[in-house]
Design a binder for these strands. Structure first.
Length: 551
RNA sequence: GUGCCCGUAGCUCAAUUGGAUAGAGCAACAGCCUUCUAAGCUGUAGGUUGCGCGUUCGAUUCGCGCCGGGCACACCA
């Protein structure tokens, strides 16, 4: 219907020989302003310096509209064109929901396009903590959204298991190991304090006995404490991710960038472009050429690269692997590293506009009134596993996704735990459970409830009440909503939308009986219920939230 | 000190990317269950969008300057 209006507007503008400006249709905030609104007149008025209302009426007079699709056009306010859909068109289009069922909302907008989504990427030095949850969930939902608009999505995890941090992990475990074995040893300065270190130490003692030294090797000839610690941490991280239904396609090891010579490649390419120079024994990247206040070190005087170099090499590698879009998700604490990487790939001749970086702000946890302390120094870290145990997977997803990534988030654990009307998650899930219950009731009354049969037998033109039509309108917004939230990588629009769906449904339910003496009307309304259920459960699937049949 | 993000109803947050009278939930108040799930519905109240300039037909949104909060500012990752 939107496309139809757009096309007709374009025809009218052409016919009047007005300049072909870019314009789009939007949904007005107020229902009294119609179903779709357009501001093209205001843009034209400026260019032609004519009164907007004059242009508006010229366009309306030249607009050829099929009145079985569009009920009315109005000129309003400063020159808005407000369109109203005909009920018959809404009903006709709603049949798509039944037809497409689980696929309603999917599009092939980005068919044959490849996207790489990299997120989580925590190094294997400990379990994921609750703050990681925001990124974990954001990525999980964004990946689904991208798939829904047709992208071929590679879910990727970038990690580093070399360097000082891993030695420190091994040292920390070794210290606890000695402690467990009854020996005393000084705990390394800045060592990992978490209780999990002791758990790992105990497992090592149980498996290998208490005679190990720091240099001991495992069965494959690798340093035992480091390898065991790394694997333990990685298993722990993956287990948590799997609980949240997240499965990465690829774990990309930073180390492979060195062994394959890709790091050296980047340096020599940058050197060729005269973007690298040596000073005080270090290699510097001329970031000042890209608008930075000073140049940055990429190889330290010790010969070791800084984090920038592998990050740049990694992104170059992703370009080489042939993606149309690269999406990175970072917490606000990593914001400083992003410009360096973008400058790097630009320097190497790649289009930095193909990289979309999503930055989410920090999360604070509140348990009712009390602020949950999240100190890294403290041994008591609130892990993501604990959060999942406390509030459940559905609430973890819903609460992290509910708010735009760009704002500081307050996660109320007490509220997330509550099984009451205060909790926004239950409002939308309840709508689904309610529909499921109605459909069970309908089935008992020998009414068919399969999408195909409803498509075939229901007389949808019996749907005419305001609450029914309003509900259909909301349901039909679903595909566009998916499209925009996927393209903008803004999953928080989904919960906002879901609330509208649930609200429209509850209002309909409250005002009209679904199953009544009137057989044909009953079947039409059962179809309406099923349509709502389809939209709800498709949304839940994207959000990784369950669609309860009973509550 | 420098850079990035945020500031919207008592609280937590939206606002279709510059649109019309700034909207939801919770909390507060007043109503609605012998019939398909009351975890629901209806209504009332709640605002100088931190403050001040500017840009224009039009600003919560863009620019500049303050105020307040968060996060970064290494030859750490």
């Amino acid at each position: 219907m939107q496309n139809y209006i757009y096309k007709q507007l374009l025809l009218a503008i052409k016919k009047l020989n007005y300049p072909l400006v870019e314009f789009h249709l939007e949904k007005p905030r107020l229902p009294t302003h119609g179903d779709v609104s357009c501001t093209v007149v205001l843009t034209l008025a400026k260019m032609l310096s004519k009164p907007p209302r004059e242009i508006a009426s010229a366009i309306v007079n030249n607009l050829l509209l099929d009145n079985s699709i569009i009920k009315s056009v109005e000129i309003a306010g400063a020159g808005f064109l407000n369109f109203r859909f005909a009920d018959s068109a809404i009903i006709e289009e709603s049949k798509n929901i039944l037809k497409l069922n689980n696929n309603f909302g999917k599009s092939d907008l980005k068919k044959n396009k490849k996207v790489n989504l990299e997120w989580v990427s925590a190094n294997p030095t400990g379990p994921l903590h609750s703050g990681h949850g925001r990124q974990v969930c954001l990525g999980g939902v964004i990946a689904n959204l991208l798939e829904w608009i047709g992208y071929d999505v590679t879910r990727e995890y970038y990690f580093n298991n070399a360097g000082n941090q891993m030695k420190l992990l091994a040292d920390s475990i070794f210290a606890r190991y000695n402690e467990v074995c009854g020996l005393k040893i000084n705990f390394p300065e800045n060592g990992y304090q978490g209780l999990y270190i002791q758990t790992i130490a105990e497992e090592i003692k149980n498996k290998f006995g208490s005679e190990l030294s720091r240099q001991s090797l495992d069965g494959n000839g690798k340093p035992l404490f480091q390898t065991f610690g790394e694997e333990w941490c990685f298993e722990n991280i993956k287990k948590t991710l799997h609980k949240l239904n997240i499965h990465h396609d690829l774990f990309y090891n930073e180390d492979s960038l060195y062994s394959s010579g890709k790091i050296d490649d980047v340096i020599s390419q940058l050197r060729q472009k005269d973007l690298i120079y040596e000073e005080e024994g270090a290699l510097w990247f001329r970031t000042t050429k890209f608008g930075f206040d000073k140049d940055r070190v990429v190889v330290k005087s010790t010969g070791e690269p800084t984090y920038r170099l592998p990050d740049i090499a990694y992104h170059r590698e992703k370009f080489v692997r042939g993606f149309d879009l690269l999406v990175d998700i970072f917490g606000a604490d990593h914001i400083a590293t992003i410009p360096d990487v973008l400058a790097g790939i630009e320097a190497l001749g790649f289009d930095k506009n193909k990289v979309k970086v999503i930055i989410h702000q920090m999360v604070s946890f509140v348990d009712g009134e009390e602020v949950v302390k999240m100190s890294k120094r403290n041994a008591k870290v609130y892990t993501l596993d604990e959060l999942i145990n406390d509030v459940g997977i559905d609430a973890v997803y819903y609460f992290f996704i509910m708010r735009s990534a760009n704002t500081h988030l307050e996660f109320d654990i007490l509220l997330a735990k509550k099984q009451s009307e205060e909790n926004p998650l239950y409002y939308v899930q309840y709508a689904h459970a309610r529909i499921a219950s109605i459909l069970r009731f309908a089935e008992d009354e020998k009414i068919k409830i399969s999408p195909n049969e409803l498509l075939q037998f229901s007389k949808l033109n019996l749907i005419e009440a305001k609450e029914e039509i309003d509900l259909l309108k909301v349901l039909l917004e679903f595909p566009l909503m998916i499209e925009s939230s996927a393209e903008m990588c803004e999953p928080h629009r989904l919960p906002t939308y879901l609330h509208q769906v649930a609200e429209a449904f509850h209002r309909f339910y409250h005002n009209h009986r679904v199953i009544s003496e009137n057989k044909n009307l009953t079947i039409a309304r059962v179809a309406l219920c099923l349509m709502t259920k389809i939209v709800l459960s498709n949304s839940f699937k994207i959000l990784n939230v369950s669609a309860p049949e009973r509550m």
